[in-house]
């Protein structure tokens, strides 16, 4: 089995790795780059626990090959907090108890950040449909949705002040 050498960017840092062509991006992140924040809940793109962004596009890393990462820019949960502080979404998720077991949380945070980048003022329905591919079995989604809507409100207020 010939291995493939891949150069890519993860959370702003240049990295390279060698992988089997069958390895998914999720396999590579977890097993070759030790970034275990993205989780494999299903391996079929149905649960969203492996969510990352690739060139700012939200995807399931279990449904992309590691080899496809060549030249791309990948963002994972490990890059969400800055050196100074947690992302406002991360803070709000803790405050609202928008997580119980926490296995879906990295994927939901990445997905939510992608939503708010695209739509800073989503309705409850828009949040629910955007996150329909992120399964959570603990919370019934209630506190997740509230945390997202409240973060969005705070961010809009901050943006308003900044203007």
């Amino acid at each position: 089995m010939s291995m493939i050498h891949v150069n890519t960017t993860v959370n702003g840092d240049e990295v390279d790795f060698v992988c089997d062509p069958r390895e998914t991006l999720l396999d590579v992140l977890r097993d070759r780059l030790s970034l275990t924040g993205a989780k494999e809940g299903c391996g079929t793109g149905d649960c969203g626990a492996c969510s990352v962004t690739v060139d700012d596009r939200l995807v399931c890393s279990c449904l992309m090959l590691g080899a496809e990462a060549e030249g791309k820019s990948i963002a994972t949960i490990e890059g969400m907090a800055t050196t100074e502080a947690l992302d406002p979404l991360q803070v709000k998720f803790i405050e609202y108890a928008a997580l119980q077991c926490g296995i879906c949380t990295p994927g939901i945070l990445i997905a939510t950040r992608a939503l708010l980048a695209k739509n800073p003022d989503p309705t409850e329905e828009e949040v629910r449909y955007w996150l329909a591919g992120n399964l959570c079995r603990c919370t019934g989604y209630d506190k997740i949705i509230r945390a997202v809507l409240d973060t969005a409100k705070d961010l809009r207020a901050d943006a308003g002040e900044a203007r």
């Binding site: 977890r30 030790s34 970034l35 275990t36 924040g37 993205a38 989780k39 494999e40 994972t76 949960i77 490990e78 969400m80 907090a81 947690l86 991360q90 998720f93 803790i94 405050e95 108890a97 997580l99 926490g102 296995i103 949380t105 990295p106 945070l109």
Partner: peptide, 23 residues
């Protein structure tokens, strides 16, 4: 009262180690 959970930061940063995260 409703203080923050002690495992909160680990779980929102991807640092929490679950079953498959060990090496």
């Amino acid at each position: 009262t409703t203080p923050d959970r002690p495992d909160g930061i680990d779980k929102v940063t991807g640092r929490a180690k679950f079953g498959a995260d060990a090496y």
